[in-house]
């Protein structure tokens, strides 16, 4: 079975909080995973004595375990991929910058 790195939603109504888990792909979202390697709090927060209005998101992650699971073939979901790519554990799928021209497939060669 495929092993995935994905988020499991905990928290409350309107107050999401995610465990970053390694689990078999076909198990339920909040079932007991193989391993909890971190947490992701998607609600932006301010620093206590900071008036600049800058917001941050808190993530806890066992980087070593994440690298190990990637190394043995675990497949991160889109969201998990985005988080892992920030630390350079996986290649980012989308890079900030000007959009690149789509690569068109070569026209089929006519064989006469």
């Amino acid at each position: 079975m495929v092993v995935k790195i994905r988020l499991a939603r905990f928290g409350r109504v309107n107050q999401p909080f995610y465990n970053i888990v390694v689990a078999h792909a076909r198990t339920a979202r909040n079932s007991r995973p193989l391993e909890v390697i971190g947490t992701y709090d998607p609600i932006p927060k301010k620093d206590t004595y900071d008036d600049s209005g800058k917001l941050h998101k808190d993530i806890k992650l066992d980087v070593l375990r994440a690298k190990y699971w990637i190394g043995v073939g675990a497949q991160p979901t889109e969201t998990a991929w985005r988080l892992l790519s920030m630390l350079g554990i996986v290649e980012p799928k989308y890079r900030p910058g000007p959009p690149q021209a789509p690569q068109l497939p070569d026209p089929p060669k006519k064989t006469a």
């Binding site: 391993e35 917001l55 993530i59 992650l61 920030m86």
Partner: peptide, 9 residues
């Protein structure tokens, strides 16, 4: 800003 804290499983 995303703040990653390294933890130990």
């Amino acid at each position: 800003e995303f703040r990653f804290e390294d933890v130990n499983v």
